[in-house]
Structures are given as C-alpha cells and as structure tokens.
C-alpha cells in the first residue's frame, strides 16, 4: 500500500466521521442527501460481498466492515432517529436515485471483468459509487448555503477520490501488471463530478467567506 492510497482511505474515513459528527452534534441532517447516503450503503454492501470469499488483509477487512456499518448507521439516523428524521427535507432531496441504481446495474451486466455474481456486483458498485454523490451535489446547489460540516464532508470525499487517482498513477508506474480500466475510468469520472464544488470551495476558502454555490 502506498502513501496516496492510505491518505485516500483516511480522508474517506474522515469524511464519514465528519458526517456522523454533524448528525450527532446538531441532531440534524439538514443539507445532507438521504439518497446519496442510501446509494453509498448499497455501494458498500454490493462491493464487499467478497468479505465472505476473499481475505486480503486485516486492514481491508476492518475498513470494509467500518464502511458498511457507518453507512448503514447514517441511513438509520436519517430514516429512524426521531430528532434527526424531523430535520430531513425531502422536498429538496428529489433526485431520482433509483435511476442511477438501474443504470449502474445495467452497465455492470455489460461491462465487467468476468461474468460472475461477485464480479457483476463489484462492477455495479464501482459505477454506482461514481455517480452516488449527484443527489448530494444537487441538494447543495438547490439550498445554496452550505453549512461548514456538510461542506467539509463533501470536500473530504472529493479529496479521497483525488488521492485514489494519484494512487493509481503511482501503481501504474511501479507495478508492471497494474491495469484496472473499470475502476480507473469510473474513478476519473467520479472525481470530475467534484470539480465544480471544489472550485467554489476554494474560492470561499481564499476569501475566508461562507461556502455558497450558485443556483
């Protein structure tokens, strides 16, 4: 494991901790897209089916369990916790996320590394992760103002994707047999989705002002 991959995993973990902290400290999920969180829960459940078949390392297994548990915990908070549930604004969170699930699954049926149950669900999870942030970005854009913790959550998620690209470049240069088209192309698409957000994030950071996205 190289430093980019480790830093990527850590920012990913940090993003989830920031989100949990926001929900826990404010007992509110305002500005958070439940649909994006549900998509991430599906992503982790579909991708880590190999928990039962392949063992890579204690680190991998531990992180997989953390990602599954935390994503389910976040969805549970938004759907079930009485105080958090009240702050959920479903009129802002209208993205038709089931379309993303259907399209990703269809794509996985055609584009995969092997036609096996695990490989199709793995490819599906990669495609779905690439677009899972869309409901969140649309929600932020619609509400205009972004609170600090939600902004940091999206920032760390984007940083995680950027670091994974550096990790692939590093692996491509150092590992002779490193080719991974599905993950890398999807990863670049996913990172590109954050470009707009990052632009406004850096402007607000430079001006030391509150993050605002144009309508």
């Amino acid at each position: 494991m190289n430093i980019f991959r480790l830093a990527g995993d850590m920012t990913h973990l940090l993003s989830i901790l920031v989100l949990l902290l926001k929900i826990y400290a404010t007992k509110s999920c305002s500005g958070v897209s439940r649909k994006t969180q549900e998509l991430y829960a599906i992503v982790f459940l579909a991708r880590y089916l190999d928990l039962f078949t392949d063992f890579i390392s204690v680190y991998n297994t531990f992180m997989k369990i953390v990602f599954i548990a935390s994503s389910l915990a976040i969805v549970w908070c938004i759907r079930v916790h009485p105080m958090v549930k009240r702050s959920y604004d479903k009129d802002l969170d209208t993205f038709r996320h089931y379309l993303l699930v259907a399209a990703s699954f269809l794509l996985a049926l055609f584009l995969h590394e092997k036609f096996t149950f695990l490989e199709i669900f793995w490819a599906f999870s990669i495609y779905l992760e690439a677009v899972a942030i869309l409901p969140q970005l649309v929600l932020l854009q619609r509400s205009g103002n972004v609170d600090n913790l939600t902004g940091q959550y999206v920032f760390f998620l984007g940083a995680y994707r950027g670091l994974y690209i550096l990790n692939w470049i590093y692996r491509y240069l150092t590992e002779p047999r490193f080719t991974r088209w599905i993950a890398c192309v999807s990863g670049v698409v996913q990172t590109a989705l954050y470009a707009d957000f990052f632009y406004y994030y850096f402007i607000s950071w430079k001006n030391n002002s509150k993050l605002k996205l144009p309508a």
């Binding site: 995993d9 890579i56 991998n60 997989k64 590394e113 092997k114 793995w122 047999r177 991974r180």
Partner: peptide
C-alpha cells in the same frame, strides 16, 4: 500466481 484483478482496494 495471484489473480491480476485481485480486489485489494476498498
């Protein structure tokens, strides 16, 4: 030989 497409990333 280790599978070339081993899923060692998260």
């Amino acid at each position: 030989v280790k599978d070339q497409v081993a899923k060692d990333e998260l």
